[in-house]
Amino acid sequence: MASQGTKRSYEQMETDGERQNATEIRASVGKMIDGIGRFYIQMCTELKLSDYEGRLIQNSLTIERMVLSAFDERRNKYLEEHPSAGKDPKKTGGPIYKRVDRKWMRELVLYDKEEIRRIWRQANNGDDATAGLTHMMIWHSNLNDTTYQRTRALVRTGMDPRMCSLMQGSTLPRRSGAAGAAVKGVGTMVMELIRMIKRGINDRNFWRGENGRKTRSAYERMCNILKGKFQTAAQRAMMDQVRESRNPGNAEIEDLIFLARSALILRGSVAHKSCLPACVYGPAVASGYDFEKEGYSLVGIDPFKLLQNSQVYSLIRPNENPAHKSQLVWMACNSAAFEDLRVLSFIRGTKVSPRGKLSTRGVQIASNENMDAMESSTLELRSRYWAIRTRSGGNTNQQRASAGQISVQPAFSVQRNLPFDKPTIMAAFTGNTEGRTSDMRAEIIRMMEGAKPEEMSFQGRGVFELSDERAANPIVPSFDMSNEGSYFFGDNAEEYDN
Results as ranks from 00 to 15, higher is better:
residue 239 M to G: 08
residue 17 G to P: 15
residue 472 A to P: 13
residue 340 D to H: 14
residue 150 R to S: 11
residue 101 D to Y: 00
residue 35 G to P: 04
residue 160 D to I: 08
residue 257 I to W: 09
residue 28 S to T: 06
residue 65 R to N: 13
residue 75 R to E: 04
residue 337 A to K: 02
residue 379 L to G: 03
residue 449 E to A: 07
residue 23 T to V: 06
residue 129 A to V: 13
residue 209 G to C: 06
residue 123 A to T: 11
residue 122 Q to T: 07
residue 196 M to H: 05
residue 219 Y to C: 08
residue 234 A to L: 03
residue 494 E to Q: 12
residue 235 Q to Y: 01
residue 331 M to G: 04
residue 459 Q to A: 00
residue 341 L to E: 05
residue 299 V to M: 14
residue 236 R to V: 08
residue 213 R to W: 08
residue 315 L to T: 11
residue 412 F to V: 09
residue 486 S to G: 02
residue 492 N to S: 14
residue 407 S to E: 04
residue 443 E to F: 03
residue 391 R to A: 02
residue 476 V to S: 00
residue 24 E to W: 02
residue 34 D to H: 10
residue 338 F to Q: 15
residue 489 F to W: 02
residue 282 G to M: 10
residue 177 G to F: 12
residue 472 A to I: 02
residue 354 P to M: 03
residue 153 A to Q: 11
residue 324 H to G: 09
residue 457 S to I: 01
residue 443 E to M: 12
residue 57 I to Y: 03
residue 263 A to H: 06
residue 189 M to Y: 05
residue 467 S to Y: 04
residue 179 A to R: 02
residue 63 I to T: 11
residue 66 M to Q: 13
residue 402 S to C: 07
residue 209 G to H: 07
residue 167 M to C: 10
residue 490 G to T: 01
residue 147 T to W: 08
residue 400 R to F: 04
residue 477 P to L: 00
residue 121 R to I: 08
residue 205 N to C: 14
residue 421 D to Q: 12
residue 348 R to L: 06
residue 487 Y to I: 10
residue 270 V to K: 05
residue 302 D to K: 09
residue 259 L to S: 11
residue 460 G to S: 14
residue 132 G to Y: 05
residue 435 G to C: 05
residue 106 R to M: 07
residue 274 S to L: 09
residue 477 P to Y: 01
residue 81 E to G: 11
residue 85 A to R: 13
residue 25 I to G: 15
residue 307 L to P: 00
residue 28 S to K: 12
residue 440 M to L: 08
residue 417 N to A: 03
residue 7 K to D: 02
residue 226 L to I: 10
residue 4 Q to N: 15
residue 269 S to H: 11
residue 41 I to H: 03
residue 434 E to S: 15
residue 363 V to C: 15
residue 82 H to K: 11
residue 9 S to A: 15
residue 70 A to M: 02
residue 248 P to G: 04
residue 442 A to F: 00
residue 323 A to M: 11
residue 245 S to C: 12
residue 288 G to N: 08
residue 484 E to Y: 00
residue 29 V to G: 02
residue 421 D to R: 00
residue 411 A to G: 02
residue 310 S to F: 05
residue 109 V to S: 06
residue 384 R to E: 04
residue 106 R to Q: 07
residue 366 A to L: 07
residue 99 R to F: 03
residue 139 W to E: 07
residue 480 D to W: 04
